[in-house]
Each structure stands twice: as C-alpha cells, then as structure tokens.
Design a protein around this nucleic acid. Structure first.
Lengths: 203, 203
DNA sequence: GTCTATACAGCGATAGAC
DNA sequence: GTCTATCGCTGTATAGAC
C-alpha cells in the first residue's frame, strides 16, 4: 500500500463521503472536513487536487463496478431473464454490496454532479445500464421503463414510509416493481405505439 | 399593481429562474443575476430577504397548484379512474400548463432544495400527491408504485433519447407507463406480497 | 513526502448614505 | 430604490517547515 502516515487520504475520503451524503456537497466545506480530521484545509490539497477530486476518488471504484455490470449484461442473451438478473445484481450493489453509501451519496447529490466531470461519467454509465436493460427494444417506452426500473431500486430507499421495514424488504419490493416494468420491455406493442417510429439506429 | 419601477422584482424572478434552471442554484451567484439586470447585488436585497427567498417566491404558486390537485383527488372516489385522472392532470402542469419551467427547475435542483425551506415544503406536497395516488392501499408496494408514476412524468423529459420526439409524445409515453403502475395499486395481491413476510428469497 | 501558515478572489449578507 | 463599503466565509494556491 502507498499510504505511509496511517492512510490520511483514506480517512479524508471516508469523512468527506459521510458529510457530503449527510448534508450535501455544496453545504460541506473543506474546513469542516479538515477540522474533523484535526488537520488544516491545505493538508487536503496535498492529497487531492480540488474538492471535486475528492468526489472523483470514490466515484471511480463505482464506475468500474457499473462497467462490469454493463459488460456482463451485454454478454448475455437479450431476454427478460437477463434483464431481471441485471436489475437484481444492481440492487445488490445498492443494498447489500460493499459500498451502498457511494450510491446514496450519488442519489443525494444529483444536481451538483451534473457539473462535476465524475458526475457526468456516472450519468453516462447510468444511461448505458438503462440501455443494457432494454437491449433489443429501443422504443421510447422501453427506455422509460428501463430507467424507471433503476429508479425503483433507488426510490425504495425513501419513498416507502413503513414503520419497521428492513433493507431486505425494501430490496425485494424494489425488485418486484422493477420486474413488472422490465416484463413490458420487448413485448409486442398491443397498441398504436408506432407513432414517430423512424426506427432509430442505435449503436 | 405594486411594482413602481417597471417590475424589478418580477425581472429578478425571471432571470433567477432561468439561471438557476440552466446552471443550478449554487453555481449561480447573486452578482451574476444583478449584472444581468444592470443593478448591484445589494439592490436584490431590497426585493428579497435572501437568495433562498427568490426561490420561495416562484415556488409558492406551484405549491398552491399542487394543493389544489391533492384536494381534488381527495374529493374523488379512490378508484383507478381517479388515479389516472390525477396523474394526467399532474402531467398537464409539467408539460402543457402555465409553468413547466418551475418544475424543470425543481427537477434540476433536488439536492439543494432539501435544505431550503421551500424545497422541503415542495417535498411534502410531493409525498402527499403520492399518498393521494395510492389512497385505499397503503401497502409499501403501492407507495413505491405511486411515487414511480410521478417519476415517470418527470423522467420522460430526459430518459427518452429519441431523435425528433415531441413534448406531446413524451407526455403520452409517461402516462402510458404511469397508468400501468397505477393499475397495480389497490389490486388484490396475487402472490405472497403479505407485507412483512420475512421471506425475501428471490432468485 | 506530509503538512502548516498565509494569502487571495469570490460568495451571501448587512449597514447606512443618497 | 439603489448605491458603496464591509463582514465572515468559501474554494484555491503557494511558500516553506519538518
């Protein structure tokens, strides 16, 4: 390992992630982070180029995770079973996995992440995941359903207001609703869903 | 009318809404707004108590709009038809209505609005709308479905990446998916959806 | 290589003059 | 109703101690 002084860099990451998630990126100052670690603001600048760079540091791992997820999906047949397995694996990374906290941070800081480069990368990965979820059906309805199924996983964290509900139940609930959305992808359109179908060429 | 100098207050509101939506609340400075109006920062403080207060000013109208929507829903029978009519009216305020721009601002600034008082009010109204959407079925699944149906309306703005798709088509699409989600509310559970059942094993 | 001290321009906000 | 001047704070940058 490269940290020689007891992993100050890792401690910064941990505290920053906690504070950013709790009170938001913009409302958390570097002074606040530094004080919590009993160092000065400037010390942070030895370990990170900027405030944004702190975010980038703990987003990178997550990017690789999502890339792996997308790559796996693309190697599977474009069936409902694959879609369901994909959303289930995605839920694993949100609920049980090694870093659900990073995703909570992301969910909490959507706005500011739009202007952060790492946020835009994350956004791109999200869209690619949604694309993987509706492979074989690039209709607008399928795109919307795929995106909403990802949202179901995110939303189950705060939308469900039940007294003593557990994380496991939230996960199961999210997948139940997500599965229904995914089941409607790839099915033949029973209505006039033709509309503007210029049959977009997708890469 | 109360504006004597040509409606400076209204001009501030208009410029602020535009900039906040375009580049985000935190990344827009009062100096930027003031310069655009050829006044100084301090002049803004005659018209508004704070930066937050500018947001509150154009959020208030929207709150009343949502209150009216919720009140109407509560006066109707708790049927699927009511739910569908409600989400349709909601989509009207997002797409065709008088101020879709305010909603776009909201969608763009979710994070910061969590700490703004007007944002919390808005959040509360959103939850009440979701509650109205699942009246008669307070199961966790129903709450999740109701929330997602609102998200379907929001999400259709950016999740659907089709070349020349129109606002009307986005609206129709959003309602198609939302209707499916709403149809599953209040229906008798055909599975082991017995709420607190600890049987979470899904494969 | 790790950190402190110090400085800077810009921020939201306030006080008081015109 | 709008100004100038100022406050404490922010993210960022650099010089230099160990």
């Amino acid at each position: 390992m490269r940290e020689s002084t007891g992993g100050t860099r890792e401690r910064i990451k941990a505290v920053a992630l906690e504070l950013f998630t709790e009170q938001g990126y913009e409302k958390t100052s570097l002074r606040e982070i530094a004080e919590r670690l009993n160092v000065t603001k400037a010390a942070l600048y030895y370990h990170f180029k900027s405030k944004d760079d702190i975010v980038a540091s703990f987003v990178e791992d997550r990017l690789e995770q999502m890339d792996a997820l997308t790559a796996w999906a693309d190697s599977q047949p474009a069936t409902l079973a694959t879609r369901r397995a994909l959303i289930s694996r995605y839920a694993d990374t949100m609920f049980g996995g090694d870093m659900p906290s990073v995703m909570r941070f992301f969910e909490q800081n959507q706005t500011v992440l739009k202007s952060l480069s790492s946020g835009q990368q994350m956004r791109g990965r999200m869209m690619r995941l949604a694309s993987a979820l509706c492979r074989g059906d690039d209709s607008p309805a399928a795109q919307l359903r795929a995106t909403l199924s990802l949202f179901a996983v995110h939303t189950s964290w705060f939308a469900v207001r039940a007294p003593g509900i557990s994380d496991g139940e939230r996960r199961r609930l999210a997948l139940e609703v997500a599965d229904e959305l995914l089941a409607a992808i790839g099915a033949e359109p029973d209505e006039d869903s033709a509309s503007t179908s210029t049959a977009g060429a997708r890469g």
